[in-house]
Computed example of a mutant assay.
Amino acid sequence: MFATNLRRLRHAKGLSQDDLAYEAEVSRSYLSQLEKGVFYASLKIVDKLARVLDVEPAELLKSPKRRK
């Protein structure tokens, strides 16, 4: 869920991985691995990313809405 939401929200904000990584003070390679689901993010990282994306941290952890 996290990886999918992170990528979706980053795209919705029009940010590149480089831009988001810079603003959240993480490396671009680490961000890339988070978006691929290779690494898990700590709560501290979730908070940093949420702040840059201007969403509540829970938004990054939500299950996607099911289509009917």
Score class of each variant (00 low, 15 high):
V26H: 05
K13V: 11
A50H: 03
Y30K: 03
N5G: 00
L60K: 01
D54E: 13
F39M: 07
K62E: 14
F39E: 04
P57Q: 02
A41Q: 13
S16A: 12
S42M: 06
G14P: 08
E25G: 03
E25S: 10
K62R: 15
Y40A: 13
R51Y: 02
V52E: 05
K13G: 12
L9G: 09
L43A: 12
Q17S: 08
A21H: 09
K48D: 14
A41G: 01
E25K: 15
D47L: 08
R51Q: 14
I45H: 01
S42E: 09
E56A: 08
E35Q: 04
L31R: 02
Y22N: 11
A50F: 06
Q17E: 10
P57C: 08
R51D: 00
V52Q: 07
G14L: 14
A24P: 05
R66S: 08
K68C: 02
P64Y: 01
F39R: 15
R67G: 10
Q33S: 11
Q17Y: 05
S42K: 06
P57S: 07
A24C: 03
K48A: 12
A21R: 09
S32Q: 13
K44W: 05
V55R: 04
K68D: 10
S63L: 14
V26S: 02
L61H: 03
V46M: 13
R66L: 04
V26L: 15
R67K: 10
G14V: 11
A21G: 11
L53H: 05
L31E: 03
A12K: 15
K36W: 01
R10M: 11
D54Q: 13
K65F: 04
A24F: 06
L15S: 02
D47R: 07
K48P: 00
H11M: 15
D18M: 10
S29F: 00
D18F: 12
Y30H: 08
R28M: 03
G37D: 06
D47K: 09
R67T: 08
R8E: 14
Y22F: 07
Y40C: 06
E23I: 05
R7E: 12
Y30W: 14
A50M: 06
K48Q: 05
V55K: 03
R67F: 08
A50S: 04
V52N: 04
Q17L: 12
L34C: 09
L15F: 14
R8Y: 09
R28Q: 15
K48F: 06
R67P: 02
E35R: 00
A58W: 02
P64I: 08
F39Y: 15
